[in-house]
């Protein structure tokens, strides 16, 4: 009896929920929720390629390794919202890193997985890890030995760019190859 005033609202809400749930495909969360991810992904991809190693310099400061010949300059790749798939534009980056690692079997790399700030922190640890694992799979497929690879997820704890906007988010959804 007490449900009656809510029955209508609940029915609408549940049907909306079902529709919303149906609209996103399983396994990945598209930018269907707010359309920001999908809409700007293309733009971000282009921007991502232009990014220099300035972002990873912070994490690798003091390391003399970057001056060794061979370590690829580009060691950061970016991801779409709620996605851990390698974007085609970054395959070359990964290829060059894979090549380096193959040719330097003693070199080790730590794949740092990161997310943007949205969502809960521990879950984002998992998302970040997924992205790093995605890169790890790519590298091992390219012949890199798994023993050279370590995976660490920082989730949203180490953003590259502060801000509550899509540009900042896009710059934070990344995996850094930390040698």
């Amino acid at each position: 009896m007490k449900f009656k005033p809510y029955a209508k609202g609940l029915a609408v809400a549940v049907s909306l929920a079902v529709m919303a749930g149906c609209s996103s495909s399983g396994g990945t969360q598209d930018g269907s929720m707010n359309g920001t991810g999908g809409g700007t992904a293309g733009g971000m991809g282009a921007g991502g390629q232009g990014v220099s190693g300035g972002q990873v310099s912070g994490t690798q400061m003091g390391g003399g390794q970057q001056q060794q010949a061979g370590i690829p300059d580009v060691r950061t790749i970016y991801f779409d919202y709620d996605k851990d798939t390698i974007r085609p534009e970054f395959e070359s980056v990964l290829n060059s890193n894979a090549q380096y690692l193959r040719s330097h079997p003693n070199a080790n790399v730590v794949l740092q997985g990161h997310t943007d700030e949205r969502g809960t922190r521990e879950y984002n640890l998992g998302l970040g890890e997924r992205r790093a694992q995605s890169v790890e799979r790519f590298l091992t497929v390219q012949g890199v030995s798994p023993s050279q690879i370590d995976v660490v997820s920082y989730g949203e704890e180490r953003p590259a760019v502060e801000g509550h906007n899509e540009q900042a988010y896009a710059k934070n959804r990344r995996v850094i190859l930390d040698y």
């Binding site: 549940v14 929920a17 919303a20 749930g21 969360q29 929720m33 969502g119 809960t120 879950y123």
Partner: peptide, 23 residues
């Protein structure tokens, strides 16, 4: 079952309510 993002659940002390982050 409401929405497509619900995480970080916490029980109320009487166990009858769940608090969470909902997108």
């Amino acid at each position: 079952f409401t929405g497509n993002y619900n995480s970080r659940g916490r029980f109320s002390p009487d166990g009858k309510t769940l608090f969470m982050i909902h997108r």
